[in-house]
Amino acid sequence: MGLGTIRSCAAGLIAGMAMVLATLAPVPAMAWGGYGHRTTADIALANVQPSTRAAIARLIAYDAQLGTPECRIRDLEDAAVWPDCVRRDYWRWGYTAAWHYRTAPICEAYNARSNCSGGNCVLGQIERNQRILADETLPANVRLEAMAFLVHFIGDVHMPLHSGDKDDKGGNDRVTSYGDVPGLNLHGIWDSTLAERAITSAQPPLVRAYSAAERAELAGGDAAEWGRESWQLARDVVYPGAFEQNVCDGDLPENAALTQADIEAAIPVSQKRIVQAGLRMARMLDEAFAPGPLAPASSAR
Rank of each mutant, 00 (worst) to 15 (best):
R87E: 11
Y239W: 05
R301V: 07
I263T: 06
T103N: 14
G155H: 12
L24M: 08
G119P: 01
A148S: 14
G278A: 07
E217T: 13
E145C: 02
L21K: 05
R72V: 02
S299A: 08
G170L: 00
G227C: 05
Q130W: 09
A61Y: 11
G220T: 04
P105N: 09
E287D: 11
V181L: 09
I199C: 03
R53E: 11
D42C: 03
A209C: 10
A104I: 07
Q125E: 10
S117P: 03
F153K: 11
T137P: 01
T259G: 13
R102S: 00
D168N: 09
V122Q: 10
E196W: 05
E145P: 10
D78F: 08
A195C: 10
S201M: 11
V175A: 08
K169M: 06
H152V: 00
N115D: 14
T40I: 10
A290N: 02
R7L: 15
N246W: 11
T39W: 13
H152W: 01
G188T: 02
A140H: 15
G67Y: 08
V175L: 09
G183R: 05
C107E: 06
W99M: 04
D286L: 05
A98T: 04
E254C: 05
L45Q: 13
T176D: 01
S211T: 05
A277W: 09
T68L: 14
N141Q: 15
A195K: 08
A41T: 07
